[in-house]
């Protein structure tokens, strides 16, 4: 009887996982093939240089590498260092709602010259803009509708003084192409160790742009850590 119950439970779990996977249009957790530890993701699974000429830079192979994260129990993650990459394929997004999620971590000096937008995760068309880490004095983790990346613009959800460095923050964006709005949720841990959660629903796509019904491109620019990226039809 115990065995039967176990089989039913296991079978249900497999079906659920299969269903979840089937709904996922694109998933990259950087922990399994085709991703390889200590290797660049450029040329793998659709990741490419934003500008092909960047491939000629001496440090180009190191700008987007899967590495063992020494601050995260050696788990693999994508390390971005002065990166400028893009990917343009997200499978067939079959519904009016699409959920994007990923994890970001950053590291910065608490008392040093500021670099402004140090990390940007940009979605094109730019109607639902970008997620960023703004390293300027009044910056922090935030999001912005127009994708222009200007310093001081956008909504700061966690000021830099409260960010725990080298700790992942999970971002979830639920896009509604029908309503031309999106929901933003961010969770993680603050510098003082307390839990952090942010949510904003129904944020309008940039009103100055033409309506959109799909994601065309993702750009990853700057320095930080990126992990557990998924794009799913909902």
């Amino acid at each position: 009887m115990k065995n039967l119950r176990f089989l039913i439970t296991a079978g249900t779990a497999v079906v659920c996982l299969w269903g979840a996977k089937a709904r996922g249009d694109y998933i990259a957790n950087f922990r399994a093939p085709p991703y390889v530890l200590d290797a660049s993701v450029i040329g793998v699974d659709g990741w490419e240089y934003r500008f092909p000429s960047r491939a000629n830079r001496p440090l180009a192979p190191y700008e987007a590498r899967v590495v063992a994260l020494r601050w995260d129990d050696e788990k693999p993650g994508l390390r971005l260092q002065g990166a400028s990459l893009k990917r343009t394929s997200f499978g067939t997004l079959s519904s009016e709602k699409v959920q994007i999620s990923f994890r970001l971590a950053v590291n910065f000096a608490d008392a040093a010259p500021r670099r402004n937008k140090a990390l940007r995760v940009i979605f094109w068309p730019e109607t639902f803009g970008e997620i960023f880490f703004d390293d300027s004095m009044k910056g922090g983790l935030g999001y912005q509708g127009d994708g222009l990346g200007k310093p001081g613009q956008g909504t700061i959800v966690l000021p830099r003084a409260e960010i725990k460095t080298r700790s992942f923050y999970t971002f979830t964006l639920l896009l509604d192409f029908g309503k031309q709005t999106y929901d933003v949720a961010v969770t993680g841990v603050k510098k003082d160790g307390s839990p952090f959660a942010y949510k904003a629903d129904g944020v309008e796509f940039s009103p100055s742009k033409a309506p959109v019904n799909k994601i065309e491109t993702l750009l990853l620019l700057g320095t930080g850590y990126f992990d557990a990226f998924s794009v799913e039809s909902r």
Binding site: V67, R70, W71, Q81, T165
Partner: peptide, 9 residues
């Protein structure tokens, strides 16, 4: 410089 991950940059 290239491979550091610590809090001191």
């Amino acid at each position: 410089e290239r491979d550091q991950q610590g809090g001191i940059i």
